[in-house]
């Protein structure tokens, strides 16, 4: 299972650097468990980054004005929105995913979006605002937790698989029986 951590942002534009900084901070720590990518691209141009991964965490800044700065909102891809008519460069994540699916490309089956409410993502050369700077640590922790949850799921799946292998022919779970490496004969 390949995992992508994608930090989005513009490192010159104040709080907009948040996603990039979180990704950067996690790069070494997550080495071997996830690929950490920083990008300032948007929309469809991101398609190529996602292709080939099974799951992804996207970290980005957001300014809704509805939450206090420093608020972290977690969204699943399904929460982000349905496919709608695209506009400008803003083909959204759902469109990117739908397109990848239609074209038969390998796209993460699960994508979590961590959006950090920021103060000013527009001023070039600005420092991080205080609430955003204070939230980078917790935000990185959320990413790390997600990666660990996935690792645990993988471990549990592997154990089930091993278990299913030992009890082959018994009542193995579907996910085991279809993927168990002990059943190559089914393709022969």
């Amino acid at each position: 299972m390949r995992t992508l951590i994608l930090g989005l942002g513009n490192e010159l534009a104040g709080d907009d650097a948040a996603g990039l900084l979180v990704a950067r901070a996690l790069r070494e720590e997550l080495a071997g468990r996830a690929d950490v990518v920083e990008s300032s691209l948007s929309g469809l141009a991101l398609l190529e980054i996602f292709v080939g991964y099974d799951r992804a965490v996207v970290v980005d800044s957001v300014r809704t004005g509805r939450n206090p700065p420093g608020t972290i909102t977690e969204l699943a891809l399904a929460d982000v929105g349905r496919v709608s008519a695209p506009s400008l460069h803003h083909t959204g994540l759902p469109e990117v995913a739908a397109m990848a699916e239609r074209l038969g490309l390998r796209f993460p089956a699960e994508t979590r979006v961590l959006a950090l409410e920021v103060v000013d993502p527009y001023t070039i050369g600005a420092e991080l605002s205080e609430p955003v700077a204070a939230t980078l640590g917790p935000l990185a922790r959320r990413v790390r937790d997600q990666v660990e949850r996935w690792a645990e799921q993988d471990g549990a799946r592997a154990r089930r698989r091993a278990d299913g292998t030992r009890r082959i022919g018994a009542r193995g779970e579907r996910s085991c029986t279809t993927t168990a490496p002990s059943e190559p004969s089914s393709s022969g």
Binding site: S61, V62, V80, S87, H90, L93, A115, P121
Partner: peptide, 14 residues
Amino acid sequence: CLGCATHSLPGQMP
């Protein structure tokens, strides 16, 4: 190009 500041991934209409 409204993209000079915008790269936000999720979302629908701008």
